[in-house]
Protein backbone atom coordinates (compact mmCIF):
# COMPACT_ATOMS: atom_id res chain seq x y z
CA UNK A 1 0.00 0.00 0.00
CA UNK A 2 1.53 3.28 -1.00
CA UNK A 3 -0.77 5.63 0.84
CA UNK A 4 -2.74 5.60 4.05
CA UNK A 5 -6.34 6.60 3.70
CA UNK A 6 -7.43 9.48 5.88
CA UNK A 7 -9.78 7.96 8.52
CA UNK A 8 -11.53 11.31 8.97
CA UNK A 9 -13.66 10.44 5.92
CA UNK A 10 -15.17 7.51 7.83
CA UNK A 11 -15.97 9.52 10.93
CA UNK A 12 -18.09 9.84 12.93
CA UNK A 13 -18.74 6.14 13.43
CA UNK A 14 -22.27 5.02 14.17
CA UNK A 15 -22.87 4.07 17.78
CA UNK A 16 -23.13 0.36 16.95
CA UNK A 17 -19.96 0.37 14.86
CA UNK A 18 -18.10 2.28 17.55
CA UNK A 19 -19.05 -0.18 20.27
CA UNK A 20 -18.36 -3.24 18.09
CA UNK A 21 -14.87 -1.97 17.31
CA UNK A 22 -14.34 -0.98 20.93
CA UNK A 23 -15.39 -4.43 22.14
CA UNK A 24 -12.69 -5.95 19.92
CA UNK A 25 -9.96 -3.57 21.05
CA UNK A 26 -8.59 -5.58 24.03
CA UNK A 27 -8.76 -9.03 22.41
CA UNK A 28 -10.53 -11.01 19.66
CA UNK A 29 -14.08 -12.18 20.35
CA UNK A 30 -16.72 -14.43 18.80
CA UNK A 31 -20.19 -13.17 17.86
CA UNK A 32 -22.04 -13.70 21.11
CA UNK A 33 -19.18 -12.29 23.19
CA UNK A 34 -19.32 -9.14 21.05
CA UNK A 35 -23.06 -8.76 21.72
CA UNK A 36 -22.54 -9.10 25.46
CA UNK A 37 -19.55 -6.76 25.53
CA UNK A 38 -21.40 -4.09 23.54
CA UNK A 39 -24.26 -4.29 26.05
CA UNK A 40 -21.85 -3.76 28.94
CA UNK A 41 -19.84 -1.00 27.25
CA UNK A 42 -22.95 0.93 26.30
CA UNK A 43 -24.57 0.60 29.72
CA UNK A 44 -27.18 -1.73 28.18
CA UNK A 45 -28.35 0.97 25.78
CA UNK A 46 -27.15 -0.82 22.66
CA UNK A 47 -28.50 -4.34 22.39
CA UNK A 48 -27.57 -5.88 19.09
CA UNK A 49 -29.74 -8.56 17.56
CA UNK A 50 -27.99 -11.41 15.78
CA UNK A 51 -28.97 -10.09 12.35
CA UNK A 52 -27.83 -6.54 13.12
CA UNK A 53 -24.50 -7.79 14.46
CA UNK A 54 -23.70 -9.92 11.42
CA UNK A 55 -24.81 -7.21 8.98
CA UNK A 56 -22.38 -4.86 10.70
CA UNK A 57 -19.60 -7.49 10.81
CA UNK A 58 -20.03 -8.16 7.09
CA UNK A 59 -19.50 -4.50 6.26
CA UNK A 60 -16.59 -4.12 8.69
CA UNK A 61 -14.94 -7.16 7.09
CA UNK A 62 -15.56 -5.61 3.68
CA UNK A 63 -13.96 -2.35 4.74
CA UNK A 64 -10.97 -4.22 6.10
CA UNK A 65 -11.41 -2.89 9.63
CA UNK A 66 -11.73 -6.34 11.21
CA UNK A 67 -10.73 -9.85 10.20
CA UNK A 68 -12.09 -13.28 11.00
CA UNK A 69 -10.29 -16.40 12.08
CA UNK A 70 -11.03 -19.80 13.63
CA UNK A 71 -10.39 -19.96 17.34
CA UNK A 72 -10.53 -23.34 19.03
CA UNK A 73 -11.43 -23.96 22.67
CA UNK A 74 -12.78 -20.45 22.98
CA UNK A 75 -15.72 -21.30 25.21
CA UNK A 76 -16.60 -23.80 27.93
CA UNK A 77 -17.51 -26.47 25.34
CA UNK A 78 -14.07 -26.27 23.76
CA UNK A 79 -15.59 -26.13 20.29
CA UNK A 80 -14.02 -24.16 17.46
CA UNK A 81 -15.70 -20.82 16.75
CA UNK A 82 -15.24 -18.01 14.30
CA UNK A 83 -13.75 -15.03 16.07
CA UNK A 84 -13.12 -11.45 15.02
CA UNK A 85 -10.20 -9.15 15.64
CA UNK A 86 -9.34 -5.56 14.75
CA UNK A 87 -6.95 -4.94 11.86
CA UNK A 88 -4.33 -2.22 12.21
CA UNK A 89 -6.45 0.05 10.06
CA UNK A 90 -9.57 -0.73 12.11
CA UNK A 91 -7.72 0.20 15.29
CA UNK A 92 -6.51 3.37 13.56
CA UNK A 93 -10.11 4.34 12.69
CA UNK A 94 -11.33 3.54 16.21
CA UNK A 95 -8.57 5.64 17.78
CA UNK A 96 -9.36 8.49 15.41
CA UNK A 97 -13.00 8.43 16.54
CA UNK A 98 -12.02 8.23 20.21
CA UNK A 99 -9.74 11.21 19.65
CA UNK A 100 -12.59 13.09 17.96
CA UNK A 101 -14.95 12.32 20.85
CA UNK A 102 -12.29 13.27 23.39
CA UNK A 103 -11.81 16.67 21.78
CA UNK A 104 -15.56 17.24 21.78
CA UNK A 105 -15.82 16.35 25.46
CA UNK A 106 -12.84 18.56 26.34
CA UNK A 107 -14.35 21.49 24.50
CA UNK A 108 -17.75 20.91 26.04
CA UNK A 109 -16.28 20.68 29.54
CA UNK A 110 -14.25 23.85 29.13
CA UNK A 111 -17.21 25.70 27.70
CA UNK A 112 -19.73 24.54 30.27
CA UNK A 113 -17.42 25.24 33.24
CA UNK A 114 -15.94 28.58 32.31
CA UNK A 115 -17.95 29.72 29.32
CA UNK A 116 -14.67 30.08 27.42
CA UNK A 117 -14.21 29.26 23.78
Amino acid sequence: MNAIHDPQEDLPLTESTFFILLSLAPKPKHGYAIIKEVEVLSGERVRLSTGTLYGALKRLLGKGWIKRFNQSGDDETGRERKSYTLTNYGRYVLNADIDRLQKMVNTAQKFSMGGQR
Binding site: M1, N2, A3, I4, H5, E9, D10, G62, K63, G64, Y89
Partner: peptide
Protein backbone atom coordinates in the same frame (compact mmCIF):
# COMPACT_ATOMS: atom_id res chain seq x y z
CA UNK B 1 -12.62 -1.75 0.94
CA UNK B 2 -10.18 -1.22 -1.89
CA UNK B 3 -10.89 2.48 -1.95
CA UNK B 4 -10.75 2.98 1.77
CA UNK B 5 -7.57 1.01 2.15
CA UNK B 6 -5.87 3.38 -0.21
CA UNK B 7 -5.54 1.45 -3.44
CA UNK B 8 -2.84 3.09 -5.50
Amino acid sequence: AKLKMGAD
